[in-house]
Design a protein around this nucleic acid. Sequence first.
DNA 1: CTGCGGTCCTGAAGGC
DNA 2: TGCCTTCAGGACCGCA
Length: 267
Amino acid sequence: MPELPEVETIRRQLAEKIVGKTINQIEILAPKIFIGEVKTAIGAKVVGVGRVAKVLRILLSNGNALLAHFKLNGQFFWRGPGDDSPARFTCVIFHFTDGSRLLFNDSRKFGWIKAMENFSEESAAAIEPFCPDFNLKNFFAVLAKSRRPVKLVLMDQEKIGGIGNIYANEALFAARISPFRPANSLSVNEAEKLRNAIVKILQKAIDCRGSSGKDEWYRQLDGSPGGYQNHFLVYQKNGQKCPRCGDPITRQNQAGRGTFYCPACQI
DNA sequence: CTGCGGTCCTGAAGGC
DNA sequence: TGCCTTCAGGACCGCA
C-alpha cells in the first residue's frame, strides 16, 4: 500500500514528467473518485508536485491544486504521446496539451483526487519524517500523550504523517519494541531508537523506490515494481524465522490490521 | 481519550 | 471446473 516512500517516489517521477505541462482535459471514468470541479484544473499549467504525508499535491499555475490519495491500491501511470498501452481499473485520465496522459487507476476505488480552488499550503498538524519537526523531543511528546499501542500511534495520521502498516511493522522490529506496548510506556531511549529506525527504513525504502509486496498493488509511474519488499524482515513473514533470534515471526490482528512481529525479541 | 464495529470496494485465495 | 465465502485494509464515523 502506498505509504510515504511510495508516494514520494511517485512525486519525484511525476515532477519530472508533468512540471511545465498544461492540462487540457480530464476524463472521469469513476465519478466517486474525483471530488470537486474539473474546470478548476483545465487550461492550467503544472508548476510543481509536492507531498504531505501520503497525499500528493499537484500545484497549478492558476493558484489551484489537485490532491491525490492512493489509499490501498491507487496508482499513477504515465503514458507519453501515442502510448496506448492498456491499463486496468483506470478511474481518471489527465490529458496534457502535448498528447501525454496521466492515468489514475484504483481497483477498489478507495483512493481519491480532489480539485482545490485557491489552494494554500497550510501547515500540517502532524509531525512527519524528513521534516525538521520530526525530532526526538516532538516524537517522544507524541508517544507520551497516548496509552494506545505504539503501532497504532505510529500509523495515526493526525499524530505522525506518512507511516502505514508496512513501515510501522518494520520500524518496530528494527527498534526491538513490541507493537502492543502502550505508546507512553516507551523510554526516551526507546523512542530515540524507534525514531531513528523510522527515518533509516523510510530513506532506504525511498532509495529502493518503494515496496511492492505480495498483495501490494503499488507500482512506479512506469508500471514497474519497487524494490524494498526484498528488504522486509517481518512484514508478511509470518511463520518464518526471525532473522535476529530464529524464533517464528507471528501475525496477529491489531485494530483490524495485520501486525507482524517477533514475540521473542520485540519487548 | 479510548476502543470497537461498521463502511467503502473488489481481487485474490480458500473451500467444497 | 466453477461457484460461493471470506479476507484485507487507510481513513472515517457513530457509539459506548
